[in-house]
Each structure stands twice: as structure tokens, then as C-alpha cells.
Write a protein that binds this DNA or RNA. Structure first.
Lengths: 153, 153
DNA sequence: CAAATATAGTTGATTATTTCAACTATATTT
DNA sequence: AAATATAGTTGAAATAATCAACTATATTTG
């Protein structure tokens, strides 16, 4: 097998492995009453504070029609508040409401707990090594792409 | 921030990063007429040769009712063949048909091409480093879990 | 400036995907 | 032989994703 192919193969193998891992983590987590997409959106709103739909769309790569409907629901549940931007009449600024923050915190805590459980069986040195690898991967991929889709965390 | 928390945070950051990356890769790839789940199933059948529905379910973590329907479609498209096991009347052995192999090969080639494109901008030394990290991550996670969900590629 | 074009977000119709429980059939256990 | 377990199918219902048309506001350009 060519050198290049071996590298491609290893990346694809990792992608399969990690797809499965993420799937398991997400399934396990989402016995809550919110969907994965809703949870990711709440995360983005929390991380940004005053974000726009467009930002979330670009961050999560979902359809704007879909996002619009999810937003409507999140507002109906009382988790977010929306107000028109004062500088641009087209955009709407989204924030977490107090109860949205509470839900976010719960999801966040559950997520922390889950990862904690996952790594609790890993010797400490390996945990360090694990995260070093993760940082390294992000760095290599981000650096190699100045105006590439893969940018941003 | 506690040491433990820093590690958990880094893992979660990586998970968000990689979720997005995988999403982009999958979206890009699946302008083909097959869904991601169908493509993953074709991969599993190809990797196993004579697999059972139960194996695929456990490998991909999807619902058995859903799998059953997808299988019905794949058979309708002529991509797979199913025959009853001779040793256990309940199980059905699944294989790729010639045209299923063709489709698999196309998807496989597109996937290779895509990863190739992705890494083509990365200096060769970094590519090696990237895959070394990926292998390391798999190793650490797999080793730490003898009878854990995360096992298997 | 006015017309054309672009951007932000919403809506409705359609399709696809998921979920879940009930069901058939065969195997295994007791 | 009866009870229980496993493999897979089916149907109904709920959710989610897709896509094009649409409103409203901004920006560009001749």
C-alpha cells in the first residue's frame, strides 16, 4: 500500500471509530428531552451570547429553515429570547433566558459527568497523552486550512 | 480549573471540533444517492462479508426496525443479497451483490479522494504526526475499556 | 438616487429518518 | 414440553431534514 494511501486509510479508520464513539456518547446523553441538535444550538448560544441564526448555521452546518423551526420551539419552551438587532433590521439576536441557562447548565454537567466516567478508567498519564493528541490533531488540521471549512472549534 | 476538568474540557472541545468535521465530510460525500447510514451499512457488509443484521446493529448502534427497512431498500436497489443461515433458521446472512460491490467501491473511492484532498494541504511530516495521534487516541480509548462500548473499530 | 442584487430569517409542502411496540419464527433453557 | 430468549419484520406515529418560495431589510451599482 502506498504511503499516502496508508495515511488516508488511517484517517478513515479513525473517522469510523470516532463516529461510533460520538454516536454512543450522544445517544447516552440524549435521554434528556432535548435533541442533539437542540443541545448543540444551546451550546452555541451560550458560547456566543447574543448570537445570530446565521452564526449558528455556519457553526453547526444545518439548514436555515430547520434552524428557524428549532428556534421557534426553543422560544416556545422559554429557553431563548430573541430581539431585533438595532444596527441591522434583518438580524435577530438570540440569548439564553434564565431557564435556558439552567437547561444548558444541566446538559453541560451531564456531558462533563459522562466524559468523566469515560476517562475514569484511563491511567492519568494516558489521559494527558490522550488530550495532547486531540490538541495536536486540531492544531494540524486548523493550521493547514486558512480559509477552509474545518476552521473554528 | 481542576486538572481533571481541564482534561474533560479538552475532550469535549475535541468532540465538538470533530463532530463538525465529520458532519462536513459526510455532507460533502453524500451528494451521492445513498444516505450516510446506507453507506455505513455497505461498509460494514463489505468489511464483514456474510454479516448478520444483529452484527450491523451492534456495530453501528442503530435500531433494528430501522435497519430492517434499510435492508429492504438495499435489496430493492439490488445492492445486497440475503440468504437464510443454514445453522440457525433465525439469522439471515447478508452479502454485497456485484452491483453492491460496485457502489461500495465508488463510495470508497470518493471517500479516499475526499480525505486525500483534505490532507493534501498538510506538510508530509504533519500528516504522519496526525495519523500517529489518531492511532494513539484509538489505542488509549480501546485499551482502557475491556468490555466497554468503545471497543472495536 | 433608483434599480438590482444580496443577506437574514420564515413558512409550507414534501420526504426521509427514527422510534417503539407488537408480531412471527426459530433456538435455547429449564 | 413449556417457558424464555433471540433474530428479524412490520405498521403507526413522531421527529427531523430538505428545498423552494416568500418577506423584509441592506448593500451595491449604474
Amino acid at each position: 500500500m502506498g504511503d499516502k494511501l496508508k495515511i488516508v486509510d488511517e484517517i478513515r479508520s479513525f473517522n469510523r471509530y470516532y463516529t461510533k464513539l460520538l454516536g454512543l456518547l450522544n445517544n447516552q446523553l440524549l435521554n434528556s428531552k432535548y435533541s442533539l441538535t437542540e443541545a448543540r444550538i444551546l451550546y452555541e448560544i451560550h458560547a456566543g451570547e447574543k448570537v445570530t441564526a446565521t452564526q449558528i448555521i455556519s457553526e453547526l452546518g444545518i439548514d436555515k429553515g430547520q434552524l428557524s423551526k428549532i428556534m421557534r420551539n426553543l422560544e416556545k419552551y422559554g429557553l431563548i429570547t430573541r430581539k431585533a438587532s438595532e444596527t441591522d433590521g434583518r438580524v435577530i439576536l438570540i440569548s439564553l433566558s434564565p431557564s435556558g441557562k439552567k437547561v444548558y447548565n444541566e446538559l453541560d454537567a451531564a456531558s462533563n459527568q459522562q466524559i468523566n466516567d469515560m476517562i475514569s478508567v484511563i491511567p492519568e498519564g494516558n489521559q494527558k497523552q490522550l488530550t495532547a493528541c486531540m490538541q495536536e490533531i486540531k492544531m494540524i488540521l486548523i493550521n493547514s486550512s486558512t480559509d477552509d471549512v474545518r476552521k473554528r472549534s
